[in-house]
Amino acid sequence: MTSSPDTKQDKSYIDKLALILINSNRQQLVARSYDRTVFYTPGGKREAGESDQEALRRECIEELSVDLLTSTKTPATIQSCGTFEAQAYGKSEGTKVRLTCFRVTPRVAELELERLVKASEEVEELKWIDSSFDREKLTLTGRMILDDLKRKGLID
């Protein structure tokens, strides 16, 4: 079924979920895929029938080798912490990504994850960054998130 021009949206959006993980040194976790030069906030797309939390948990198992709710000794929850939109990295001009971000709470559970995350086979590199990180090595949404975390006093 095709839609008429009147009902078609003006912009294309890629809808993704992301985990903002902050370590004990007040740095944010970012990841880089093979054959890419930029880092992104770990996460991905929902599969059919998944809630945001289910999708984020699955993506973190796939990318970071941890289950956000069962890998920590401290009982954890997943809390929404903002949405960011920008030009999608590597996509045609006008294609936007909408990144809905989440954090693990309480803070003690988030800190436990710091020691547990490791790059899976689909991730070439994980890095902990602060606001001095080279912005050219981040996606546009990554830059927005970094600025937001710095503004909120969550990272150095």
Rank of each mutant, 00 (worst) to 15 (best):
S4E: 08
P5G: 00
K8G: 01
Q9N: 04
Q9H: 10
D10F: 08
K11Y: 15
K11G: 01
D15K: 01
I22D: 10
I22Q: 10
N25Y: 07
N25P: 01
R26G: 02
R26C: 11
Q27D: 03
V30H: 03
S33T: 00
S33D: 06
R36V: 00
R36N: 03
T37M: 05
F39W: 04
F39K: 00
P42T: 07
K45N: 04
R46D: 03
E50T: 09
E50F: 13
Q53R: 14
Q53E: 15
C60I: 10
E62H: 10
E62C: 01
E62A: 13
S65V: 00
S65K: 03
S65L: 01
L69Q: 14
T70S: 15
T72E: 01
T72P: 06
T74I: 15
T74F: 03
I78Q: 05
C81F: 10
G82E: 02
T83L: 10
T83W: 02
T83K: 13
E85V: 10
E85F: 04
Q87V: 08
Q87G: 06
A88S: 15
G90F: 02
S92A: 14
S92W: 02
T95Q: 14
K96M: 14
K96T: 09
K96V: 12
R98D: 03
L99V: 12
C101F: 05
C101D: 13
F102L: 09
R103F: 03
A109T: 13
A109W: 05
L111V: 01
E114P: 05
R115C: 06
L116G: 02
V117Y: 08
K118V: 00
A119D: 01
S120M: 02
E121S: 08
E122W: 02
E122N: 03
V123M: 09
E124Q: 14
L126W: 06
I129G: 13
D130I: 06
D130F: 05
S132C: 03
S132T: 15
R135W: 03
E136F: 02
K137A: 11
K137C: 11
L138T: 13
T139G: 09
L140W: 02
T141Y: 04
T141Q: 09
G142M: 06
R143D: 11
R143M: 09
R143T: 12
L146H: 07
D147T: 12
D147W: 06
K152F: 06
G153E: 00
L154I: 02
